[in-house]
Design a protein around this nucleic acid. Structure first.
Lengths: 377, 377
DNA sequence: GAACACAGTGCAATCGAGTGCGAACACAGT
DNA sequence: ACTGTGTTCGCACTCGATTGCACTGTGTTC
């Protein structure tokens, strides 16, 4: 393990304002620092008049208590960290291709943030580069800055998760449960079973392809397994494999379609994608190659990110309670921070089908799409 | 100003592991805490053998230094906070409609995060509810937990920004420059001028509508102004106003179209939307009402979020260097934290047109879209 | 009027890591 | 053996806020 810390070394900054401490406030209000502290923390004891004086002093001086000192003293930072794995960052200042499973992770994070805020906690956000094999040091550093850690999928190997969980409460999001940490995820098996059932049983398509996410993603593995089973039960052809790996993003989804078509392979009548982003890319690529969705190939997503319903065609997908997933993860972590031992190893949230146009269903809500146009001004 | 802090009150948690301090490491390694500290911070002085012993002790014990103590002592937290305004949160545990300008803010944040990481900093993320008129206390609290603050648009009124900037370095993102803080944004005027020029001059459309974001958003105001000028120069009809407010999200963009059509008003031949999300919603709504894009109405976005190129039709938009915007904002803030006085009040990043299918241009890259379909397997 | 209860307040210790200064030590040169 | 030079290491103080305990002053009771 390298000993050097990140290349940070800034001077404290000769900013006069930030030199303000609770002592200044106390002097300005003519009370002791203890009283200031008690007023600021809403204790009952200071009487109204004292409280008034302190509050006025705080206001006049523009005092902001130092979080570090507070945390050190009260042994609570009111911060949880969230770590996710990001795609390759691009070299230099140009971030050309944003090949990223953006929406899903960010919506989860927003759910976490909202829940945290209700408890007075804040979110310390950090990412790990996709090619960083030893993120341990970074994450340990984060753990030191927070009261607990939320790990997205594929951030740490199970051994390291266990090591981390030994030092600080850990909850994993859509990952693998380990003996030391709790995992929280959507009901992948059920969601994909219902979706595949709809495609093969409902629409009666003869074949199904599974356009995977990362090959080692627990979510993707579970979904593939469910699709495979349903296909087998229906005696339908099932397409999967290494060349079906779309890496959870639009470019990857498009890449799979192009590779398959370039290889001259026949496409299945229906393709279930590992998430909405890759479905979007797949649809785009299919259209580029002159295939219509859903008339020639039906395509579905997974997650139901906010824009899914506004795509053309609107995307059939499995709705995961994404924000809730984040919120529940935080609540779990918060309970652990407060000293609770978690009940089980895994929390599974229910999912539901969102049937829209891309699988061949009529578009919900609006008028039938292919009507001739009205006049435009 | 209310004195009560957020409703947090968890016990320190009787977790044996986290009781580890630098003293334990020192004892275990048979050295003083000073040596441990010096080894951990990569100072030159400890000789190899001592360094070795310390490192082994750290490893065996699984020691993770406490961030709060470190921050207190070194007067540097290595944390910057980022604050953005979120849409209404929905009541209870159901987050039904994710009506949110999600991608833009989150991509900026990722740019900030990547830049911060290179400097050994982390991101403290927090949001402010759209209906929260007095976020001052929350943000002051955040400021206390970090070395500097990055403010997204519409988080704080200018007076409060000034008050905050007096205590801690502040940079605003796509907001308004104030005497006390620096603002960083894309070149809205130029981007929209070029786009409008392309629509009115290039395509020769007779009229242009501007589907706005928030009415008080500086970005949206600048873009509207630019579009208005170009329309005037071309003698083209220009459509805008309160009923054209799409609030930067898909549902809002769709709402505008439905409202206009329901009101029986004629639509302009081209609609420039304040951002990609609202363009997406507008396109969806137009199709629902039987209008084709771009044949009946041309629609454009702004930002060029990652999925814009994969939409159907692919979205003509103005490419902002979104991640770079975040990265530059961080670098600016970092310099201020290190004590630098900023040069100017505003940093403007260049933008460029991304011409795709939704404005009537041929789709770049792929085959011409309306080719008849090939066979499917 | 003395004894007591109790709320309000302040003193000083504490949290965990960083660091200036001087002690201790090693080694070379005389 | 003694001094001079250079390096390594540790004591003790520091950062800013919280909080247990002791103290003061006021109100109550017999």
């Amino acid at each position: 393990m390298a000993a050097q810390d990140p290349p940070s070394s800034v001077e404290p900054a000769a900013r006069p304002g930030s030199a303000l401490t609770i002592y200044d406030v106390a002097r300005h209000a003519g009370v002791s620092i203890a009283s200031v502290s008690r007023v600021l923390n809403g204790h009952a004891s200071p009487r109204p008049e004292t409280r008034e004086r302190v509050l006025r002093a705080v206001d006049e001086l523009g005092f902001v208590p130092d979080g570090a000192a507070r945390a050190l003293s009260s042994r609570l930072k009111e911060v949880v960290s969230v770590v996710f794995r990001r795609a390759h960052e691009g070299s230099g200042p140009v971030f050309e291709d944003e090949a990223e499973n953006l929406a899903f992770i960010d919506v989860i994070n927003r759910g976490v943030e909202a829940a945290a805020q209700r408890r007075g906690f804040d979110l310390l956000l950090s990412s790990v580069a996709v090619d960083d094999a030893t993120p341990w040091r970074r994450i340990a550093n984060l753990a030191g800055k927070s009261d607990g850690v939320l790990l997205h999928d594929r951030v740490l190997i199970p051994d390291d998760i266990a090591r981390l969980a030994d030092r600080v409460p850990v909850v994993t999001l859509a990952g693998t449960p380990t003996p030391a940490s709790v995992n929280i995820c959507g009901d992948n098996g059920r969601g994909m079973r219902e979706l595949a059932e709809h495609l093969l049983g409902g629409h009666g398509y003869p074949g199904l392809g599974y356009l995977a996410g990362h090959l080692d993603s627990p979510d993707s593995i579970d979904r593939a397994e469910a699709a495979r089973q349903v296909a087998a039960r229906h005696g339908a052809a099932f397409f999967e494999g290494p060349q079906w790996c779309g890496e959870y993003n639009a470019a990857g989804g498009a890449g799979v379609i192009h590779r398959l078509l370039d290889g001259g392979a026949p496409l299945p009548r229906a393709i279930a994608c590992a998430n909405d982003q890759s479905a979007l890319g797949a649809i785009h690529a299919l259209r580029e190659r002159g295939l219509r969705v859903p008339q020639d190939v039906a395509v579905t997503g997974f997650d139901d990110v906010p824009v899914a319903r506004h795509l053309t065609p609107s995307l059939t997908t499995v709705r995961q309670p994404i924000r809730q997933l984040g919120a529940e993860a935080f609540e779990l972590l918060h309970a652990m921070i407060a000293g609770a031992r978690p009940d089980g190893r895994e929390v599974v949230l229910p999912v539901e089908l969102a049937l829209r146009a891309s699988c061949g269903c009529p578009d919900s809500g609006g008028a039938p799409p292919p009507a001739p146009a009205a006049a435009a001004g």
